[in-house]
Amino acid sequence: MTDPAAGLSRLFEEQRDTLNRYFLRRTAHAWDAQDLVQEVYLRLLRADRHGAQDIRNPEAYLFTIASNLLREHAALRQRAPVNGDALEDVLERLATPCEAAAGVDRELRRRRLGELIARLTPRCRAVLVMHYRDELGYREIGERLGVSSNMVKKYIVKALAACRVGMARYD
């Protein structure tokens, strides 16, 4: 990135408090998202040498690494440690820049996600909402929409990816 221009530095002076808050949040968040992923990835690779065959459940393994890293990092920053190793805690921590904002951020995140869902193509939206809100299975949804279970899954995948990409833009 380029250095701030002269005009910008004046703006920084005037808006220092606001900007500081903003950047603190951004950097805290940036660690959570990016560094953690890098670190998880490296540990995943390292595990190879110690016998990847032993990893019976890759997903559980992934989240164990992630939650351990978060705990280490929290200790490093001398903040309250992550309580327990509940998956929700880990994910919540990943998604929010700081504890104080957690509740607010979750609300905001859900609202944004709700807006993204509303903007999906009609079928993607219908399938996603039927699956996650109405808790209908692929087959039941397929019957209602007159498409195969396979297609239903494809629509869900498409919808999830669109939501994920849309949410990533807020990160």
Partner: peptide, 20 residues
């Protein structure tokens, strides 16, 4: 990163879809 992101998204989907 995408897999963790997907898990995170999943945690919010029920609540977000309920807004529909």
């Amino acid at each position: 990163s995408e897999y963790i992101g997907m898990a995170r998204l999943h945690g919010d989907l029920g609540a977000a879809a309920a807004l529909d």
